[in-house]
Computed example of a mutant assay.
Amino acid sequence: MTDAPIGRVSADTMTPLVFIHDAAIDDFIATLLIESMPQFDLKGVIIANADCVPEPGIEVASRVNQFMGRPDLPLGLSKARGWNPFPWPYRGDCIRLGAIPILAPFTSNVPTPPPSGDDLLADMLQAAIDTGTPLTILLTTGFTPLTDVLAARPELAQGVGQIVWMGGALDVKGNLDPSTIPAEVANKHAEWNVFWDPFAADEALARFGEVAVFPLDITDTAAVTKELMATLQAQGAEHSFSQFAYEAYDLVSEEPFYDMWNVTSTVWLDAPELYSAPRQTPLQVVQWGFEQGWLQPAPPEADRPSHNLYLSFADQPGFYDYVTTRLARSA
């Protein structure tokens, strides 16, 4: 049984959106891109304690909000706890991001302890119900921040509109690295946003239909290329958003495995024509054993809703052009 979302907004109305992420470098470029999308109204940002260190993560999020001219954008820290913690070397990227020169003028205005991301999400979902306007959820971390809130208040599921999620790996290898976690759990199929909390991922995919899923199959083809970096650097002389993206990606541009994971799912919101038609299939997640976190098609007898898996670009050069064009702006 799936939760049916409430009615869609009309074409001439901005769509409310919440961005739930874990303060990875790519998440903040995605945030700048959302700000360039006139049809979306970014209502709030929620940070999950996953691929980050939570306090530096939410503090850099506050500084990015100020940088892009949104100092009052609601910001909260989820109470969600994952099952398999991200490696510390990955989580430290948010600290390095906080040291890039373009953010130097900005100071975090997040109190201690940070505002509750759970309360923020609950308030936005209740507003969606009260106004009859569904809330689009862009999720580039595990599903736990959403499933935890709905476990406490199941009625809020009626406020959920489109869910867009970066996670999983279907026809390609996962990204668990045995050099960063014990080989005994580093299976070849799991992707980190699923592996972090496979139980929440399985629960959400069983509950909600037509989730737009962007697995490693497509993000593996969205590398931080030298051409992208050169364009951002050139544009950075006149456009602060490009300079931010250049300085941020420069921290990881020499890492061969670093891709535009979260930007890939974000761009789809505004430019779905750049993506090949999705594969439509129900999904399930292996929850126990060595293959924990393996996202895979569910058998018919599982009686699960179908989801839209975006596995490739229809126009890969157009994807890169979209990113650089949208970032050719200043706060």
Rank of each mutant, 00 (worst) to 15 (best):
G117Y: 12
L121R: 11
L120D: 13
L77Q: 04
D118K: 00
A50K: 06
S78R: 00
T107G: 00
A50V: 12
S116F: 14
I47L: 05
P101K: 02
F106G: 02
D93I: 03
R70G: 05
L120R: 10
G117H: 05
T112G: 04
F86H: 15
L121N: 00
L73Y: 06
I58A: 03
I102L: 05
A48C: 11
S78M: 03
I47T: 11
M68Q: 14
G82D: 07
R63Q: 13
D93R: 10
V110A: 02
T112L: 11
D119G: 08
L75W: 13
P71K: 10
R91F: 01
F86W: 14
P114M: 02
N84I: 04
I102V: 13
K79L: 13
V60E: 00
P113H: 09
N49P: 05
V110F: 08
P56A: 01
G117T: 07
I58T: 11
T112V: 05
Y90D: 10
Q66W: 02
V60P: 00
S78P: 00
N84F: 11
P56T: 04
I102Q: 05
N49K: 01
R96D: 12
E59K: 06
P113W: 05
P101M: 01
G57T: 04
N49W: 02
D93N: 11
A48F: 08
P114A: 13
N49G: 01
F67D: 13
N109F: 05
G117V: 10
I102A: 09
F106S: 02
L75G: 06
